[in-house]
Design a protein around this nucleic acid. Structure first.
Lengths: 148, 148
DNA sequence: TTACAATTATTGTATATACAAATGTATGTT
DNA sequence: AACATACATTTGTATATACAATAATTGTAA
């Protein structure tokens, strides 16, 4: 993860551009490590996020729009994402009785169980990602990221 | 870009996880803004990066492996990425005479010209992205990102 | 209440990407 | 020279994603 090497190709990249490139590189690294950890469970990062959101609902079902707001994905993908989780038995979907346009998506027992496994894998991944940063670093980083 | 809203769904997300989520969100926002700016030129972020790398070569051709090292994409995509840039006339490709396994990829005049346009669009995008951060913020952020 | 607009989700399709296998070229060994 | 091996790139294919079009339901205003 050496920005300098990548950056040296263009003569002198100004600080703002450098920061953005730097951020993208770090984000990519993070993404790669996490995706790789999840792959052992045949779970994509997006699927994992859906499961986490559903767990956060504490039994209350979520509809697609809700999932969508909390995620980066586009609506059209969310449908198919949920399809895949249903196939694996980690969530179920039913039509909302009060508004039949909506669907209600819930996490299942097996879904909650796999999520516990995934939590552990995530924690290991995080340790790998953040092993050079201490609490103060993280706090500062959060503060800076808040400005975006 | 309110992390809090996304984060409140799970009870209390510990600082390391929060930081990583936060970073991903910011990276996504950046990606979206930049991609959107480039779309006006029917140029993907990846294509743009290839052009920038080629410009950085200062006339010296790059082969696929070189492009690949400097980018995030996988080799198999780089081939097709370059295909598209050739179609648009922004780069050309020829077989390396000294080692015919290799290819030599060069940016063309039209490629350099469009790149100047793109530079301007990028600068505007950067201003949008970073308008809440001052130089000191950027320096600190870079310092922290270096730790990854 | 009927017609029209808005909401919610799904599907079709084109494009992008990942991964593995294949191609063509070069190098080393016997 | 013949063969195996390594290298650089390309291609095939399965999966993922984006965007637009469609379907189904509900809200609303004349």
């Amino acid at each position: 993860m050496n920005v300098e090497e990548i950056i040296k190709t263009e003569k002198k990249i100004p600080l703002p551009s450098r920061t953005i490139i730097h951020l993208s590189l770090v984000a990519n690294k993070i993404n790669e490590i996490i995706t790789c950890s999840l792959k052992a469970y045949e779970m994509s990062l997006e699927q994992f996020n859906v499961l986490r959101i559903l767990r956060g609902q504490k039994g209350k079902p979520a509809n697609l729009s809700t999932l969508n707001e909390r995620m980066i994905t586009k609506m059209s993908n969310t449908t198919r994402l949920v399809d895949k989780l249903i196939l694996k038995g980690f969530v179920d979907r039913s039509i909302c009785p009060s508004n039949r346009r909506k669907v209600e998506i819930r996490i299942t027992k097996p879904g909650e169980e796999i999520l516990l496994e995934l939590d552990k894998a995530m924690q290991k991944a995080e340790e790998r990602i953040l092993n050079n940063l201490n609490t103060k670093d993280l706090e500062e980083l959060n503060k800076l990221l808040d400005k975006f």
